[in-house]
Lab assay of single mutants.
Amino acid sequence: TFELKGKVGKVVKIAEDHYLVEVEGDKWIAYSDEKLSLGDRVMVVDVDGLKLKVKRIP
């Protein structure tokens, strides 16, 4: 999972307290300090167990 840091993915689902992002064909639970929208491109900035911390990228 640490090899996911720096990888780019996209938001595929928005849940009440987390996001579902697809990175390299796999779906992961993710969270972010900013509000994300469906389809946003994101970069993995940290890995916390099986959850990814992501940030939006242009």
Rank of each mutant, 00 (worst) to 15 (best):
W28D: 01
D48S: 07
G49H: 08
D33M: 10
Y31W: 09
V23T: 01
R56E: 14
G49P: 07
K10N: 12
E34I: 05
K27S: 09
E22S: 05
K13R: 08
G25I: 07
K35Q: 13
I14S: 10
F2M: 15
D17I: 11
D48H: 10
K27Y: 11
L36D: 01
L4D: 15
V11K: 00
W28T: 02
V12F: 06
M43E: 15
V44S: 01
L52E: 00
R41S: 14
F2I: 15
E3M: 01
E3R: 01
G6N: 02
V44P: 01
K7V: 03
E24V: 04
V47L: 06
V8H: 11
R41T: 13
V45W: 07
K53R: 10
A30R: 00
V11I: 12
V54S: 01
W28N: 02
D40H: 05
K53E: 13
V47Q: 05
V45Y: 15
D40V: 06
D33S: 12
M43F: 04
V45M: 14
V23L: 04
K35R: 09
V21Q: 00
G25E: 14
V21N: 01
K7S: 06
D33L: 05
L50G: 14
K5D: 15
V47K: 03
D46L: 03
G9K: 00
Y31G: 14
E24C: 12
I57A: 08
D40Y: 06
T1L: 15
F2S: 15
L36R: 02
H18A: 11
K53I: 14
L20F: 12
I57W: 07
I14R: 09
V21F: 04
K27G: 08
L38A: 10
V42M: 09
D33C: 09
D48I: 05
I14L: 14
D26M: 12
E16Q: 13
V44G: 01
L36G: 02
E3V: 01
D46H: 03
V12M: 09
P58F: 05
V45P: 00
K35A: 08
V47M: 04
F2V: 15
V44Y: 02
E24A: 04
S37T: 12
D33V: 04
D26P: 14
L50A: 07
D48V: 12
E22K: 05
V21Y: 01
K5M: 15
V47T: 03
G9E: 00
V47Y: 05
K51S: 09
K7Q: 05
G25H: 08
P58L: 05
L4G: 03
V47G: 03
W28A: 02
K27E: 06
V23S: 01
K53S: 11
G9I: 01
E34G: 11
K5V: 15
K51E: 07
G9W: 00
G6K: 00
V23R: 01
T1M: 15
D48Y: 11
M43P: 01
G9T: 04
D17C: 12
L36P: 05
G39M: 08
I57G: 05
K7M: 05
V21L: 05
L38R: 04
H18R: 08
L4E: 15
L52M: 03
D33Y: 08
D26K: 06
I29L: 13
K51H: 10
K51N: 06
E34P: 07
R41Q: 14
K5P: 08
D26Y: 12
K35Y: 13
H18Y: 14
D17S: 11
R56P: 09
V11T: 11
E16I: 10
V47N: 02
K55M: 15
L20G: 06
V23F: 02
G9C: 03
E22Q: 13
L20Y: 05
V47F: 14
M43H: 04
D46Q: 03
D46P: 01
Y31D: 14
G9L: 02
Y31M: 13
V54R: 00
K35F: 13
G49D: 10
L52A: 03
V8A: 06
V8L: 05
K51A: 11
V8S: 09
S37V: 10
D26F: 12
Y19L: 10
K10E: 14
A30I: 01
V23Y: 00
D17L: 11
G49A: 10
K55S: 14
D40W: 05
K55F: 05
E22C: 06
V12D: 13
P58R: 04
V23Q: 01
S32H: 13
L4N: 02
A15F: 10
F2P: 15
F2T: 15
G49Q: 08
G39D: 15
A15W: 11
D26T: 06
K35S: 12
D17W: 09
G39Q: 12
K51V: 09
L52N: 02
M43C: 12
F2H: 15
S37D: 08
I14Y: 05
V44N: 01
E34D: 13
M43Q: 08
K35E: 11
W28V: 03
D26N: 10
V12Q: 08
D17Q: 10
Y31K: 14
K53C: 06
D33F: 09
D40Q: 09
K5T: 14
L38Q: 08
V45D: 14
D48N: 12
L50I: 09
V44H: 01
G6D: 08
P58E: 06
L36M: 08
G6E: 02
S32Y: 05
K13D: 08
D17T: 07
A15C: 07
I29Q: 13
M43I: 14
V42P: 02
D17M: 12
R41A: 11
M43A: 04
Y31S: 11
S32R: 15
E24M: 04
L50Y: 05
K51M: 12
L4I: 10
D33H: 12
S37F: 07
L52K: 01
T1N: 15
V23N: 01
L20P: 01
L52T: 03
A30V: 03
L38K: 07
L20D: 07
V12A: 15
I57M: 13
K13E: 09
K55C: 14
L36C: 09
R56H: 11
K7H: 04
K27H: 13
F2K: 15
K10Q: 11
A15G: 13
Y31N: 11
V8K: 05
D46N: 02
E34V: 10
I57H: 05
